[in-house]
Amino acid sequence: MTKHSGPPGQPDQPQPAERDAWLSVSARKNRRRRVVLADPRGRGRVLRTIIELEEQTSVGEKLIRDLIRTQLRTGLALGGGTLLLLATLPLVFYLLPSLAEVELVGVRLPWLLLGLLPFPLCYGVGYAYRRLAERHEHDFVSSVDR
């Protein structure tokens, strides 16, 4: 259940705006510190590229356009592939009614294909997308860094 940041009314209570039921105070402070301190890279260089991005210079715009295009392409490839795979099933069943007679471990094949297969498939595709999308973002951050 929820871990609260301490008994209410404690003198060392943080500002009301920082009080948070979901994260203990220490965890929240740690998180902030991580963002600021555990960033060994020179902030100045990063900042310059960030400003380039923000002001949409030709370099910055190209960078972000490429990122968006890559992410969209990844999504479309994975999503389109899954859709194609699932959406051919009704057509196949319609054109090949004999498929319904095939049995696998005592269950008819269409029941297995529709009742079992799509769920791991969706998770697998989602997992692959998370990996790819985070890699693209990571690459983008490091390209900004340099």
Partner: peptide, 24 residues
């Protein structure tokens, strides 16, 4: 019967689409 299975499939795959294109 079996054609009703498209409901749970769609409910799940809808989330996949959401994740790919919308969530972040």
């Amino acid at each position: 019967g079996i054609d009703a299975l498209w409901y749970p499939i769609g409910f799940t795959a809808g989330y996949l689409a959401m994740m790919l294109f919308v969530a972040a």
